[in-house]
Design a protein around this nucleic acid. Structure first.
Length: 330
DNA sequence: AAACTTCACAACCGCCTATGT
DNA sequence: CACATAGGCGGTTGTGAAGTT
């Protein structure tokens, strides 16, 4: 990016841009407040579309492409700014597992989020973790880690946050968590989230946890105690921030597979395919194999000492490894 | 406190496909 | 069918803020 606010384009990108560039000086780099205002004002009066002519008519010395990008990624009134919520993270992971790098398609399911923002999130957060795990982001190992560790973890964190909010509601906070009874008689908690955002309708309102699912059936009490990791607090897992702990840095093996699957099946955010992806229709998910690779990773991190990344600290502690052994009769 | 590093993100480029004329 | 334009996407860069040394 050119840092100068007065730089003009000598050579453009596409052919049409080149043609425009030859005809007039075009600015590039960061947009000024005046440019933003001009663009907003023009679109407010004339609407979007025909970006090259729009840029000319509005008196902006920018390419149409630049105007479009600025409008769609930044100036649009419905663009949602701020940290990616837990629900959005879950949605991104799920949709990416289904569609790959089709960012705009993914963005369609996250109202207010742009493809660029989602791409940036993926590249900076998700790929970073793949790098830390020393595996390719497209590798089966990493996809399994996301699908069976990270995503269930996010689900549980969402649930935990909601539970916390419910508690605070009863103590006088203004949160709007509600308790309802389903037709089957099961009492459920629905999540209070940013009600103005459609993503909540897609994901969160569907994330209705069976009450008491936290009992975790056959899970050992020791591990149950570790379910809410030390890094988790109501503060850092709010639905308006991506805390470091909301990433994969503190994910752990799902406490109870059947329980998680049941939950997901019952509360599928985006249809049955979501369940399918988690349950691994191909059947290639092998707990033992993954356990082995996790142990290897754990050893690598231990051997490598503390590299300063949080993965080495809280990915798998001895207690959790012990639990894995118990869980899979190892 | 200064220098350096890391991180998140806006913005861009180049290429491609889709759509309109 | 050919061409022009719009839009999508992967990859990359530059910058400021935050963190670290």
């Amino acid at each position: 990016m050119n840092s100068s606010s007065n730089n003009s384009v000598e050579m453009g990108g596409s052919e049409e841009d080149d043609q425009m560039n030859m005809m007039e000086d075009l600015r590039r780099g960061p947009w000024t407040v005046e440019e933003d205002f001009t663009l907003i004002n023009y679109i407010a009066h004339h609407g979007e579309g025909r970006w090259n002519s729009l840029a000319r008519c509005a008196g902006l010395k920018r390419t149409g492409k630049s105007c479009r990008l600025r409008w769609l990624n930044y100036l649009r009134p419905d663009v949602r700014r701020g940290n990616i919520t837990l629900e959005e993270q879950l949605m991104i992971l799920e949709l990416h597992s289904r569609w790959g790098n089709r960012w705009s398609k993914i963005a369609q399911h996250l109202p207010g989020r742009t493809d660029n923002e989602i791409k940036n999130y993926w590249r900076t957060r998700v790929q970073k973790h793949a790098k830390q795990l020393k595996c390719d982001v497209n590798s089966k190992q990493f996809k399994d880690t996301m699908r069976y560790l990270w995503m269930p973890r996010l689900v549980e964190r969402i649930q935990a946050a909601a539970t916390t909010t419910t508690t605070t509601t009863t103590t006088g906070c203004s949160s709007s968590s509600t308790t309802t009874t389903t037709s089957t008689g099961a009492t459920t908690n629905s999540y209070p989230l940013n009600q103005s955002n459609n993503i909540d309708n897609i994901v969160t309102s569907q994330l209705v946890m069976p009450q008491g699912h936290n009992n975790c059936g056959n899970m050992s009490s020791n591990f149950r105690n570790t379910q809410i990791t030390p890094s988790y607090t109501p503060e850092n897992s709010s639905n308006t921030a991506v805390s470091p702990g909301s990433d994969m840095t503190d994910c752990y093996f799902p406490a109870n597979h059947s329980l998680n699957q049941n939950f997901i099946q019952q509360n599928n955010p985006i249809g049955n395919e979501f369940t399918d992806t988690l349950i691994s229709p191909s059947g290639y998910f092998n707990p033992w194999m993954d356990y082995q690779s996790m142990i290897e990773q754990n050893n690598q991190w231990s051997e490598g000492g503390n590299r300063g990344d949080d993965l080495s600290e809280n990915m798998w502690n001895a207690e959790e490894i012990w639990f894995l052994k118990q869980q899979f009769n190892m």
